[in-house]
Amino acid sequence: MSTSTPRRPDARAKPSARHTRDTTTSPTERAVTYGILCLFALIALTPVAGILSTALSSQSSLDTGFSLPKSLNWGNFADAWTRGHFGTYLVSSVVVAVAVVALTTVLATLAAYAFGTMRFPGSNALFYLFVVGLTLPQEAVIVPLYFDLRHWGLTNTYWGLILPQTAQSLAFGVFWMRTYFRNTPRSLLEAARIDGATHWTSLTRVLLPMGRPAFATLTVIVFMWTWNEFLMALVMVSDEAHRTVPLGLAFFQGQHSSDTALLAAAAALIALPVVVVYLLLQRRFIQGMLTGATKE
């Protein structure tokens, strides 16, 4: 929307280089700073720790507080898996997430390749059309989308979840991959062309193998969004067979709201896959999520 250019995705902050130790800060100031940081870290972790401690507590205790459970009780997870049907919900979530990630990656890469390396009339206008999707709220499309999908017989199917979520992810995917293609050295493509590579071989043999970091970021971000998506599943799915985990948790809360231990175990099961990937690849997550807003 504004005319500022997007930040380069690879422009990582170099942590230590510029932060030389200087002598103008007093030991007291240092202590206070670390104290504040620890306090905020504690606040960020408390709800997460609360969920975990409740999930591991025995079911009979009604205490929702933060006391450490006396013995680790893994039974709640098994219960959520079987009695709460989270095994089935996880299958639905995995099917939808894998399909959305695959579709988004392929479609976004193809489109972004054209936007980033070729020139043709109307390319800018078409690109801005995709960029609009970055800030478009679901509420603007969800109502007619439901009636359309019902008309096409796609409600209560995986496709009814996959296709709309792919459309939503494409905005970010096209934007992100175009930035990557624009930032690859021009000379590389020219060299490939001189060697007789077609536009297709340049993409598959030269640009894709080089772009692994960009793909990794795109994959984890789209996976997280799809995995956590709630409203789309709530509207499009009413039968249990296609329920995804966030939807399962919402229904579970409605039925067993007093069973806090089971509810917490279910919540932990949902959060676990994303948190594990996040801990392994936190730089990619942060990078991707913060670049989404830097529009052109």
Binding site: V106, A111, A114, G133, L136, P144
Partner: peptide, 26 residues
């Protein structure tokens, strides 16, 4: 750097999904 009509072909699949499931409902 000359315009390439093939660009439209690369954009088409993404635009189709984006159009049918986002722009059209909008």
């Amino acid at each position: 750097g000359e315009p390439r009509a093939v660009g439209y072909l690369y954009i088409l699949p993404a635009l189709a999904v984006f159009g049918v499931f986002l722009l059209w409902p909008l």
